[in-house]
Design a protein around this nucleic acid. Structure first.
Lengths: 344, 344
DNA sequence: GTTAGCACTCTCAGTGATTGAGTGCTAATT
DNA sequence: AATTAGCACTCAATCACTGAGAGTGCTAAC
């Protein structure tokens, strides 16, 4: 179903219907549309058109003789071609810049938390941020720093200024010299590689290097996964869940409970956000398109930000009935701001 | 109000009343107590005693001619002196050991997340963990690792095997030698100090050290705060919020919303957990004692775990109507397990 | 001091009755 | 041929009312 199949009038009516529903959350009747919008049509005519739209599966009635409500498909069409794209109001842009760019260089974690918070606040939805996925990042440098008798800190420099560390447990009898030699070998063989290859076939590259200590290398690669894949709590930041409570679609206890459960799972959300193609622009997923158990009544607007070759994601999540025009422009702008800040 | 003021009978009745209320969440009537518990008293007698207990402020009626419900004060007395302490069932202890101790050494973050999760699951409440507060930790070693032209990674070793890192932005013209000298100076002057003193008067200790580069030292101390105080997201782990939805006291939308909002604030919870005295054992805070906006209907059971001289906190949060006996024994055991794991 | 008995109170679940929003259809109008 | 006015019909939501049930407080008897 695409907008070419719709007459001018049908498009116009679908648009105002969804506009109106978005702002009221109540089923929309033909009379309201006739009176409140400059359609120059009687309610009866609108009723007829609405019947057609319902047959096309774009709107539906919650029950006989109630007004109409958009379906997921209706929203899809609305977002793709009916929406009047509105430029971000300067006032909001200013607020975003102020709250996201004011402080100097801070820890990535911190920035992401703050970003999710600001997104949530400005949209009154749930703000979501995903840490840069370092898989495609290129290793620039590896340091092995002894921090105690039996502990070694691996410091992994990635292009674009990202640094990852992980603590290794080593047997006590590894001496200074061995560590230095191994470090050198690691650097020679792995610098310039992506972290992804490190995970898959990095170990092979060190197979027959005389200098590297075999045990040390093994411990290193055992821990490599922790360098790439961090615990969900640090990868995904969620803020503003309490905003759900003010939305009329979530007054129902069970629906709300389902969404909260989904949010707490985290992993499905991470996967959903990471599954997007690299470099893709802003994506809107509507209702059942959001393939997350329990979040059927939700939509998600997400965009990638870039740190060098690496990408992360920011977005918002909320009921399918959301102000797409506004949310889209905000998410888009935040992604750009974040890229700026991280690159800089 | 203490248990000495209560007659044997009053204690007995208060105990079974609270026991019963905890398991049913319904106001408890005199007949139920007379029939279901071996008190050998008629409902009329129980009614009289209940009236007395109500006058003492230990129980109350939600409305005229309903059964009785415990007040915060009632719970307090119950927890302090009426509870039959039950040893942790071996089955649960086994599960806890399995889920918390099975894997080898992992990142602290990871352990804490997992712990919160397990706590939530086993108690059907909200699981909460607080990262070790390194304030009282002793610095064992400081390393300055150059990771790129303009970036320097500070690696701070703390006794008990905890390592903290923070990224510094430096001007490009700091050379290798300067860094090494500064590092040496930092180590000499700061090793053996607690992180707390580093924050307050650490800078003074470097004031007139010839070797240290003044600019570098300044950047270092500017970032010191980030070493001690990490963003709330990494300090506090919360899991199981969805469990609230199954509790009858939170079927009311507004109450639930209030608690969720409180949970999302994070900072008040961190403060509340950190305000406990060092070395204190397990603490139960009931209802209004939990000084968190919106969490008036909740109780909190928390205990400290230790990593050397440093302490962190684990606990659970839920409605005042919770199985204190069970929860207390679980939290207590988890704190012990965590100490073991972190020390080892 | 304890208990049986009774009058009284208050919630809760169910039942109509009423209202009002909104539709679909038909016939009249342009 | 498209649009509109008019009307019968449907259904959710609200309200007042009712009876049942749970539980109390009090009094009088044990």
């Amino acid at each position: 179903m695409s907008f070419e199949n719709l007459s001018e009038r049908e498009q116009k009516i679908l648009r105002v219907l969804i506009d109106h529903y978005i702002s009221t959350a109540e089923p929309v009747g033909s009379r309201v549309l006739a009176n409140r919008y400059p359609l120059q049509l009687s309610s009866a005519t609108i009723r007829n058109t609405m019947q057609d739209l319902e047959e096309m599966g774009l709107i539906k009635q919650p029950y006989t003789s109630a007004g109409r409500v958009p379906t997921d498909e209706g929203y899809r069409l609305y977002v793709d071609s009916l929406i009047n794209p509105q430029p971000l109001p300067e006032e909001i842009a200013r607020q975003l810049r102020e709250q996201l760019m004011n402080r100097q260089k801070r820890a990535v974690e911190d920035i992401l938390g703050q970003t999710a918070h600001v997104l949530a606040q400005l949209t009154s939805q749930i703000g979501v941020t995903l840490a840069p996925s370092v898989d495609r990042g290129v290793i620039s440098r590896i340091e092995l720093v002894p921090v105690s008798e039996r502990r070694l800190l691996v410091v992994l420099g990635i292009h674009a200024g990202i640094v990852r560390t992980v603590l290794l447990e080593v047997s006590a009898d590894v001496d200074r010299k061995t560590i230095e030699d191994t470090q050198m070998a690691l650097n020679e063989r792995l610098a310039g590689q992506t972290l992804g290859t490190l995970k898959t076939n990095g170990a092979d590259r060190l197979r027959d290097d005389q200098r590297a200590d075999a045990r040390l290398v093994k411990v290193f690669f055992d821990a490599a996964n922790d360098l790439v894949q961090r615990p969900p709590g640090e990868t995904l930041h969620i803020d503003g869940t309490a905003n759900l409570f003010t939305q009329p679609e979530f007054t129902n206890h069970d629906v709300l409970s389902g969404v909260m459960r989904a949010l707490e799972e985290r992993l499905p959300i991470i996967q959903m956000l990471q599954s997007r193609g690299v470099g893709e622009g802003l994506i809107v997923s509507i209702g059942r398109e959001v393939k997350i158990q329990g979040a059927e009544g939700c939509s998600m607007v997400a965009a990638n930000y870039r740190v060098g070759r690496i990408e992360g994601t920011v977005g918002i999540m909320g009921p399918t009935r959301m102000e797409y025009a506004k949310v889209v422009s905000i998410v888009d702008y935040v992604a750009k701001l974040l890229s700026e800040q991280m690159e800089g």
